[in-house]
Structure formats: C-alpha cells, structure tokens
Simulated assay, not measured.
Amino acid sequence: MPRYRRCRQPGCHAMVQFPNHYCVKHFEHEAEYLANRQRWARTHGKQYQHKYNTQTRNRNATKHDQYQFYRSSQWQRLRKQALERDYYICQYCGQPNSKTVDHIVPIEYDDKLKDHLDNLATICRKCHRLKTDWEHLWYGTGIGNQRKQATELHDVLSIKHLMNKNKNNDSES
C-alpha cells in the first residue's frame, strides 16, 4: 500500500506519494529541496548525532538508564498493558485513540516506580505537554531544574486539577 504525505509547498494541501516531497504543481522545487537536505546532512554528520546522544539524550548515567528502559521489552509489555487497561483513552481529558503512556510519578523523580503498572496512565499529546510542564514546577524535573522534596501524587484527578490550575494561572499572566 503506497504511503502519502502533504506537499511541502506552504499553503498547498495536495497529497504526494512517497518518496516525493512536492505535488505535480510544485515539483520544480523537489531538486532544490533534496540538495538542501543533502547539504544539511553533510554538515550535520556524526558530530551532530554524537552531540545529541552524549549531551542531550545520555547526558548522565540516570538519563542513560531511563533511555535504555524505554527501549526494553519490559517497557513495551507494560505500555501495551496500560493502553489496553485504559482502552486507549486519555485519563486526563478523555480523548479517545490516545497512544502515549506516561508515568504518573515521573521516573526522573522516583525511579523505583518505573516498572509499576499502577504508575502508568494513557495520555494524549496535549495533556502530556501540560503534565510535563506541571512536573517541572511540582517535582523540579527537567533539564536545569533542581529536584524538589514534593509530595508524590498518584491520583490522576488531583494531577489534572493542578495541571489545569497551573494552565489557567499561566494564561492570566
């Protein structure tokens, strides 16, 4: 079955079959786009990937262990169990067809809970972004933040309430 994507021309919504990037109407831009991609790839070779892997993804032993956990078959099994338990419905807003599984208490804060099914919840992308921002404030997780001695919240409804309260405070500012 062929795969399709949108034309890269701004404002054009025509569908293009892989591996092309532009529709028939804008195909004259294809060669220039491919040349730019190759130029970028040459300048961002192994050093770029090495920097990403060593300084961002695997910046310390804890982050390296977390990354390895998310690549494990144990995580894949837990993730599938959580999705099926929650019927692919976001536990924060109720949106169906959500395919992301999130740790209720982040493993960066308490890594002993990383493989507990009751610490996992299905979450949509929008809620995941809000929850991550809330975790940075509540637990002090994330790059450059200092971990706080906060109370671990295991209840999705309490977290949802605090996330929305935080979101409303940000919009008023």
Score class of each variant (00 low, 15 high):
Met15Tyr: 10
Gln95Asn: 06
Tyr22Met: 05
Arg37His: 03
Asn164Leu: 13
Lys80Trp: 09
Ile123His: 04
Ala82Tyr: 04
Asn145Leu: 01
Cys124Gly: 07
Cys90Lys: 03
Asp102Gln: 06
Arg125Gln: 14
Thr132Asp: 15
His116Asn: 13
Pro2Val: 13
Asn169Cys: 09
Leu162Thr: 04
Ile123Gly: 01
Gln81Leu: 15
Ile104Ser: 03
Asp86Ile: 03
Lys167Tyr: 10
Val101Arg: 02
Lys25Asp: 09
Gln17Thr: 13
Ala35Leu: 06
Ile143Ser: 11
Tyr4Ser: 03
Asp110Gln: 06
Gly144Arg: 12
Ile123Met: 00
Pro19Ala: 10
Arg71Phe: 00
Ile143Phe: 12
Gln74Ile: 09
Gly142Arg: 12
Asp102Trp: 00
Arg129Thr: 15
Asp170Phe: 03
Cys90Trp: 00
Val16Tyr: 00
Glu32Ile: 09
Asp133Val: 04
Gln17Met: 14
Glu108Tyr: 06
Val156Phe: 02
Glu172Cys: 09
Glu28Gly: 01
Ala14His: 11
Tyr139Arg: 04
Trp40Tyr: 15
Pro10Arg: 10
Gly11Ile: 06
Asp110Tyr: 06
Ser73Ala: 14
Arg3Cys: 08
Arg6Gln: 12
Tyr4Ile: 01
His21Leu: 12
Tyr67Phe: 11
Cys127Asp: 09
Arg57Ser: 05
Ser173His: 13
Ile159Met: 09
Phe69Trp: 08
Leu78Pro: 04
Asn168Val: 08
Asn168Ala: 15
Ala35Ser: 10
Ala82Arg: 05
His136Thr: 02
Lys167Arg: 14
Asp111Phe: 08
Gln47Ala: 11
Ser171Val: 14
Ile89Lys: 02
Gln149Val: 06
Lys51Gly: 05
Arg42Tyr: 08
Cys127His: 00
Tyr139His: 06
His64Asp: 01
Met15Trp: 15
Leu83Ala: 04
Met163Val: 04
Cys12Pro: 02
Asp133His: 08
Arg71Ser: 03
Leu83Ile: 07
His154Asp: 01
Leu157Ala: 15
Asp111Met: 04
Tyr139Ile: 01
Asp86Val: 02
Phe27Val: 04
Asn53Gln: 15
Gly94Lys: 10
Arg85Cys: 07
Met15Gln: 13
Gln95Val: 00
Met15Thr: 11
Ile123Phe: 00
Lys51Ala: 13
Thr54Pro: 05
Ile159Thr: 11
Lys112Cys: 07
Ser173Gly: 12
Gly144Ser: 09
Gln68Asn: 13
Arg77Lys: 15
His13Tyr: 10
Cys7Glu: 01
Ala121Met: 03
Leu78Glu: 06
Arg85Tyr: 08
Ser171Tyr: 12
Lys46Gly: 02
Ile107His: 12
His64Thr: 15
Asp86Gly: 06
Asp133Ala: 14
Ala35Ile: 00
Lys112Val: 05
Ala41Pro: 00
Thr56His: 12
His161Tyr: 12
Leu153Pro: 05
Glu30Phe: 09
Asp155Pro: 02
Leu78Cys: 07
Ser73Asp: 13
Asp170Asn: 12
Val156Gln: 02
His128Thr: 10
Gln146Phe: 06
Leu137Trp: 11
Ser72Lys: 08
Gln91Ala: 14
Gln38Ile: 06
Arg147Gly: 00
Ala31Leu: 10
Leu120Tyr: 04
Glu108Val: 03
Gln47Met: 04
Gln76Gly: 05
Ala41Phe: 11
